[in-house]
């Protein structure tokens, strides 16, 4: 779906923003050195805008870079990047007014299964390419087939699979570091006082890391898939994320990053929230 027209519009827009002094840097993608991978690029000279690309290799979630960008920046986003930006704005991590958002439809030829938000939900300018803009103010009726299939297995089989997956992990923390929802100054995994989890890669330490990672991004994960793509060991990280996306959707009717006035589900409560965790006979029935 590499559309030269879309690309030239993106480049033109970036050039104009730099020329007019509206922004100091444009965050986008340039051609990479490995087949199928485009690389994040920080362009501050208008002549360099021609190096921007918008292709199948642009799978990384660029919203991550806005967190540490101190200059006035423009960012080129696809659907999931824009949802991460919405999250970061509602979590007061970035200022909307400091950011110029150039939106374009997701250029990935094989987009993530079930993705319903290919076109950005927030932008200053949307590069139109004829992609259908979905009304995203409602909860996407999304099925997580991987979760449903997995739940058919017995508890022992599920546990064996998850243990097998996390035992591949080398704790490089790439999944955490590429994730725009992970922005803690100090991650629990690296805390030394107290040291919550060991520095080993035995199953226990790895599993606790992955379960907590999934829980920490629950209700904020936009399912961009960056974590899984980043993982060098091929750990099936999205399975845990999908499970929690599904739970957050069914328990709190919420999907993250769709609306700028969202209240994140774990920052709030209802008096009559479901309590599926209570054992029979627990609490006031």
């Amino acid at each position: 779906m590499t559309d030269t027209n879309t690309l030239s519009k993106i480049q033109e827009k970036a050039r104009r923003l730099l020329e007019d002094g509206k922004v100091e840097v444009v965050i986008g993608f340039a051609a990479g050195t490995v087949p199928g991978k485009s690389t994040p690029s920080f362009i501050s000279a208008k002549e360099d805008c021609e190096s921007l690309v918008w292709d199948n290799g642009c799978s990384l979630n660029l919203a991550k870079y806005v967190l540490k960008e101190k200059r006035k920046a423009a960012i080129i986003v696809k659907g999931c990047d824009s949802r991460s930006l919405v999250n970061l704005i509602t979590e007061n991590q970035i200022k909307r007014e400091n950011l110029y958002i150039i939106g374009a439809a997701c250029p990935l030829s094989a987009s993530c299964a079930g993705c319903q938000v290919k076109v950005p939900v927030i932008y200053d300018e949307l590069i139109e390419d004829g992609s259908e803009i979905r009304e995203v103010s409602t909860i996407a009726e999304r099925r997580y087939d991987d979760v449903l299939e997995f739940e058919k297995l017995s508890a022992e089989e599920r546990k064996a699979y998850v243990y097998g997956e996390v035992s591949k992990c080398i704790r490089c923390y790439a999944c955490r570091n590429v994730c725009p929802a992970c922005y803690c100054k100090e991650c629990f995994a690296e805390k030394s006082l107290p040291q919550w989890i060991g520095k080993t890669t035995d199953i226990g330490d790895n599993l606790i890391f992955h379960l907590i990672r999934a829980l920490h991004v629950a209700g904020r994960c936009v399912d961009c898939g960056s974590c899984q793509r980043a993982c060098p060991m091929g750990v099936n990280l999205r399975l845990l994320n999908h499970k929690l996306l599904m739970e957050v959707g069914s328990l709190y009717q919420f999907e993250a990053g769709l609306k700028e006035d969202q209240i994140l589900p774990l920052n709030t409560y209802q008096y009559d929230d479901p309590q599926p965790f209570l054992a029979k006979g627990g609490g006031h029935e």
Binding site: V147, K159, A160, A218, K243, Q275
Partner: peptide, 23 residues
Amino acid sequence: SGNLVARRKFSLLKSLLDFVGVE
């Protein structure tokens, strides 16, 4: 509201633990 906020965390934790096969 401490327990009400906690309740949401527990719901998710519990379903995740069931999911990964913890009794």
